[in-house]
Design a protein around this nucleic acid. Structure first.
Length: 598
RNA sequence: GGGGGCGUAGCUCAGUUGGUUAGAGUGUCGGCCUGUCACGCCGAAGGUCGCGGGUUCGAGCCCCGUCGCUCCCGCCA
């Protein structure tokens, strides 16, 4: 007989009755009836009830065992009597009658019980992650993650992509997030950087002629965390293809994502390809964000013109961008509902959130509420027409400079959707956001910045682009890029582009963003050089693995789908990182620590 | 870097207007219990009320500071 087990704890059934078997696992639960002890033995595969009576030689061993001790139990599989069958347990028709018992590992009093589905503070869960990972919810989430990754790999390989590894120790990149730096021992004062993404490598792989690349790639960015953004590191399904247009990339990615979501959606509906494409500008108008949750039926409309009318006397909205957010059925909400939203808007830095409710009076929709009296019937009729609202609905207004009005309207849309219960939670709704602006105006530094990915190809004639100069500011800020995001249920799942593979256009693109040609040459030497020896047109994208798993697991926090996450403040409480380096290490690396003052 | 929430027994939490000895559940330990599966019953131990300072006759509670976790803003090509 095997030293530890003949079966797993999830394996034994009525058909195994009579066999002598050996199980190993953790004590999930111990029930002591004095003369009779039940042990629920748990391993990765399941739970089997084991029972022992006092006349057995192993009794004292089992009697001493406590929760989470690791035991090896040997004995006969017996059928439970009909009245003691446990229907909730796959192994519930049988139990193991313990004959011998061995303790493989004891457990101290637990800082966090494994049994049960109670919530525990993040700090405890992270410090004792190995215990948390034993618990059903996290254990299942991590297995789901593994299965999703396997499925993604299979789907990519089936589409003719090849997985390549790229370096972890590489060069720092300008633009983008803060880098993690790794000091060089051999070159005093010089540093490697961890890749923010394998961006340049995958483009070099295309130049090298490999045609279709993918990788489950670790990415490192030294930025602060959020619920949907791990601090420090995360994983992407990084992919790149040669000789493709935007449509080709979409056609390659859609079946992979739709497929993997179908596979793991557990009954929820998934958008069928092709996913709809929403231009960035339209998304900002209709949804007030570039990552709209399309499960929310509310669509924002611009009503600046209505409030600009001479017969509308509401001064607060004059000469501003005014966006209207229809709130279906909200007219019947109590006054407190509107007050709460107004208070929330103030908290977001807005002057407030005006509203008009609409009711049917003799076949006409009539506006009610604090600001309705400033809007004459003709203007109200225009609001109704523009927003498509009906009797019993309300219309909220966000008024400000265009960008702020759009953003506030977007947040109000999300909030209203949630509070009015308009968002179905049994759907995964995908869309592409396309036609991102290439550049944006940096108000603080009074300069032009890359809006998103500096490696994207501008949607503009090559010669005309090369001829742009400072005087063409409006043209430059109006430029679109071959740049696209995939959004699902309000989460940005993926960002990608058709790349700029033309060294002249690339130098020009960086020059517009304020980088001297020499600087760009220096920073991107490897890639620019490669582009001068025959570069194919190419493009790709990189769906975030962690967010995909989070969505499919129905979680709202990445730590629930990450095996060993850091805290929001980027500490690893289990391994105790970061930690001071010892003097010998520092000396070898030619480093001296200068602590911040105060 | 900034704002909000939280921090009381191993764990989850309650704790009144600032007032006697800070409670409950769970876990732990001891006793009883042969069919439980959140087993049950009896009993016990267990507290730097995150930390430091202040106000007060008196602080878990009020004030100031600080630390940690978390959510958000900034940041995230």
């Amino acid at each position: 007989m095997h030293a530890y087990r003949t079966h797993t704890c999830g394996q034994l059934r009525a058909a195994d009755v009579g066999q002598t078997v050996r199980l190993s696992g953790w004590v999930n639960r111990r029930r002591d009836h004095g003369g009779l002890i039940f042990i629920d033995l748990r391993d990765h595969y399941g739970i089997t009830q084991c029972v022992i009576e006092p006349d057995c030689a192993a009794f004292s061993t089992v009697d001493a065992a406590r929760s989470e001790w690791v035991l090896t139990l040997t004995g006969k599989v017996v059928a439970r009597t009909p009245d003691t069958v446990n229907r909730d347990l796959p192994s519930g028709e049988i139990e193991l009658r313990i004959e011998t018992a061995a303790v493989q590992g004891q457990a101290q009093e637990l800082p966090m019980p494994v049994f049960g589905d109670h919530d525990y503070p993040e700090e405890t869960r992270l410090t004792y992650r190995f215990l948390d990972l034993r618990r059903e919810r996290l254990h299942d989430n991590i297995m789901l993650r593994a299965n999703i990754v396997t499925s993604l790999r299979r789907r990519m390989i089936e589409q003719g992509f090849t997985e390549f590894q790229t370096p972890i120790l590489t060069a720092s990149s300008p633009e983008g997030a803060r880098d993690f730096l790794v000091p060089s021992r051999r070159y005093p004062g010089q540093f490697y950087a961890l890749p923010q993404a394998p961006q340049q490598f995958k483009q070099l792989i295309m130049v090298a002629g490999f045609d279709r690349y993918f990788q489950i790639a670790p990415c490192f960015r030294d930025e602060d965390g959020r619920a949907d953004r791990s601090p420090g590191e995360f994983y992407q399904l990084d992919l790149e293809m040669s000789f493709v247009t935007q449509d080709d990339v979409f056609a390659a990615v859609e079946p992979v994502l739709a497929g993997v979501f179908e596979e793991f959606a557990r009954g929820k509906t998934v958008t069928k390809p092709p996913f709809i494409r929403i231009p960035f500008a339209e998304a900002m108008l209709k949804y007030g964000t570039d990552k709209p949750d399309l499960r929310n039926p509310i669509e924002i409309v611009d009503v600046s013109d209505v409030f600009a009318r001479d017969d509308v006397e509401f001064k607060a909205f004059k000469k501003k961008t005014v966006r209207a957010i229809p709130a279906p059925g909200a007219a019947s909400q109590p006054r407190s509902f509107f007050d709460k939203l107004n208070e929330w808007a103030r908290g977001e830095g807005a002057p407030g959130l005006g509203y008009v409710t609409f009711e049917d009076e003799g076949g006409n929709l009539v506006g009610k509420g604090p600001i309705a009296k400033f809007i004459p019937a003709a203007a109200q009729a225009e609001l109704v027409k523009a927003s498509g609202i009906q009797a019993g609905d309300a219309l909220f207004f966000a008024a400000d400079k265009t960008e702020r009005a759009a953003s506030l309207a977007g947040m109000a849309r999300t909030r209203l959707g949630r509070e009015l219960g308009l968002i179905r939670d049994d759907e995964y709704k995908f869309c592409w956001i396309v036609d991102f602006p290439m550049y944006e105006w940096n108000e603080d530094e009074q300069k032009i910045d890359f809006s998103h990915n500096p490696f994207s190809m501008p949607q503009f004639d090559r010669d005309a682009f090369l001829a742009l100069d400072k005087g063409d500011r409006d043209t430059i800020l109006g430029l679109k890029a071959w740049q696209y995001d995939i959004v699902c249920n309000g989460y940005e799942l993926s960002s990608g582009a058709i790349r700029n593979h033309d060294p002249d256009v690339m130098l020009k693109a960086f020059e517009i963003a304020g980088y001297a040609r020499e600087e760009t040459e220096e920073k991107f030497k490897g890639m620019l050089n490669a582009f001068r020896y025959g570069a194919p047109p190419h493009g790709g994208t990189a769906p975030g693995i962690d967010r995909i798993v989070m969505l499919l697991a129905g979680e709202e926090n990445l730590r629930e789908v990450t095996m060993f996450p850091m805290t929001q403040s980027a500490q690893d409480l289990l391994m105790n990182a970061p930690a001071p380096a010892n003097p010998k290490q520092l000396k070898e690396l030619h480093l001296r620590v200068v602590y911040p003052e105060k």
